[in-house]
Nucleic acid binder design. Structure first.
Length: 438
RNA sequence: GCCGCAGUAGCUCAGUUGGCUAGAGCGUACGACUGUUAAUCGUAAGGCCAUCGGUUCGAAUCCGUUCUGCGGCGCCA
């Protein structure tokens, strides 16, 4: 066995031509005739075509190499050649090939359906498509840490089991907890609000669970949210941080994953175009005006923007757009009223960020209410028991300060960056209302 | 919660107004082929037509039940 193996990416580096290299990986494709075998090798870095002739390999090895099924693990060695006939421009002329473990016939063939690929997701992860998405995903989560740490934020990890509802109880997953019942978190917010009195500026990237009965290509029951919470910060400033964050992540993906985006047919230039422009921040009331004047869509003031309205609105933009000051009535209890707004009714100090190309809401955030009485009233109105939130009210009793925060939907962002048809491809093992397997 | 679509070979799909022994491609097995691009050519194996019930001389096909999956709306990230 050779001492050191190269990756396929390394084997294609300049200056390697004519040298003998050792590679290892998995069989991606095989083709052949009675004198030649073409075997495309795959590893985490890419693919390369390997050519073996009966003369070079010997009758026995040649025959066995032709019998290797797709996804067999192999080690091999050969000479690097530049060859226009090979996919990718390089190929390896084999002088040795050994199966580490011969595979059984691989169930995924060229005829595929979304449903079948999800059923075989544990194997489909090996596909070039999933490989590219997972690489982008790694860049995205890494960039989130880099962004916040570079700005003096602390990572703060919230509990996943929670006794409280926070955004209305209907969408919580109940979990048996010893002899009791508890819920899976659907937001870190209440705990983040406790932590800012210690750390002032915090962020996290963690799983979130929502039992919404949403059967769409934009919803998951388990997804990852990148959240931030900051003391002494207003909602407009938080919205600017969100825009900076999404910009930063997009830059990093363009730097590190250009080839992955191209493989996914997610034209990088559309992201470059978005980065080259200012991203608009408009009010809800202005958005309604836009819909009426440019879209011919009349929306009654006070109604939340639905999917159709959001899509219609985003037809006019090729960058993400932040919408601020939604009507107070449609917002959760913790969002305070903006007194200075020019609007037909009370509006909240809150914002959403919509992605272009129909990818919908990627960020939702707000300033948090610091007024004890209005929090209590809002909780009662939602049917919550105020005494369950007494610990949360303590945060208002002891040195309350203005503060804001937001949550970024990691899979929604990845969907936009990678131009995915379905959010279920943005996470390795999607969990939806009907899928918990594999 | 509401609305729509689909279940036929391991996979992707045909299957006419109800009519003979249910078809193709891919994959698999065997064979042929010196440069293939998820090669090509030949042969073969492979089916409780999702389920239960009904109509009929006769049902993959028509009607109803149940189950499973997919998508849209609402809600959200």
């Amino acid at each position: 066995m050779p001492q050191s193996y190269l990756s396929i990416e390394q084997a294609k580096e300049a200056g390697r031509e004519g040298t003998v290299v050792d590679l290892r990986g998995w069989v991606y494709r095989t083709r052949g005739s009675n004198k030649l075998v073409f075997l495309v090798l795959r590893d985490s870095t890419g693919i390369i075509q390997c050519v073996g002739s009966k003369d070079d390999l010997g009758e026995e090895v040649f025959k066995r190499s032709k019998e290797l099924f797709i996804e067999s693990s192999v080690t091999l060695s050969g000479t690097v050649h530049k060859d226009e006939r090979a996919p990718g421009g390089f190929e390896l002329h084999l002088n040795r090939i050994e199966a580490v473990k011969a595979a059984e016939p691989f169930p995924i063939t060229k005829d595929q359906s979304e449903e079948f690929l999800r059923e075989k997701r544990h194997l489909w992860l090996r596909s070039r498509k999933m490989n590219a998405i997972l690489k982008v995903r790694s860049t995205v989560t890494g960039a989130i840490h880099e962004f916040f740490r570079g700005r003096g934020y602390y990572e703060f990890t919230p509990p996943i089991f929670t006794p409280n509802a926070c955004e209305g109880g209907s969408t919580l997953f109940e979990v048996k907890y010893y002899d009791d019942v508890i819920y899976l978190t659907q937001s870190w917010q209440l705990y983040a609000e406790a932590a800012i009195f210690s750390l002032e500026r915090i962020y996290d990237v963690s799983p979130t669970f929502r039992a919404e009965k949403s059967k769409t290509s934009r919803h998951l029951s388990e997804f990852w949210m990148a959240e931030m919470e900051a003391a002494w910060m207003g909602y407009r400033e938080a919205a600017k941080v969100a825009m900076d964050e999404v910009r930063f992540i997009t830059e990093r993906v363009l730097e590190r994953n250009r080839a992955d985006l191209e493989l996914l047919e997610a034209d990088p230039s559309r992201l470059e175009r978005a980065l080259s422009k200012e991203w608009p921040m408009i009010t809800y009331t202005e958005a309604l005006g836009l819909l009426r004047d440019r879209g011919g869509l009349e929306v009654e003031w006070g109604k939340d923007l639905r999917t159709i309205e959001e899509e219609k609105l985003m037809e006019h933009f090729d960058t993400p757009v932040v919408i601020i000051q939604y009507p107070k009535e449609v917002m959760a209890f913790y969002k305070p009223v903006e007194p200075d707004a020019e609007a037909p009714g009370p509006v909240a100090r809150c914002f959403d960020m919509l992605a272009p190309e129909g990818y919908g809401e990627i960020v939702g955030g707000s300033e948090r209410d610091t007024d004890m009485d209005s929090i209590k009233k809002a909780l009662e109105k939602q049917g919550e028991k105020v005494e369950n939130y007494d610990w949360y009210l303590d945060l208002r009793r002891y040195g309350s300060v203005p503060h804001s925060g937001y949550g970024l939907g990691v899979e929604r962002l990845i969907s936009w960056l990678c131009k995915l048809d379905n959010i279920k491809d943005a996470i390795p093992f999607p969990r939806t209302m009907t899928r918990t397997f594999p």
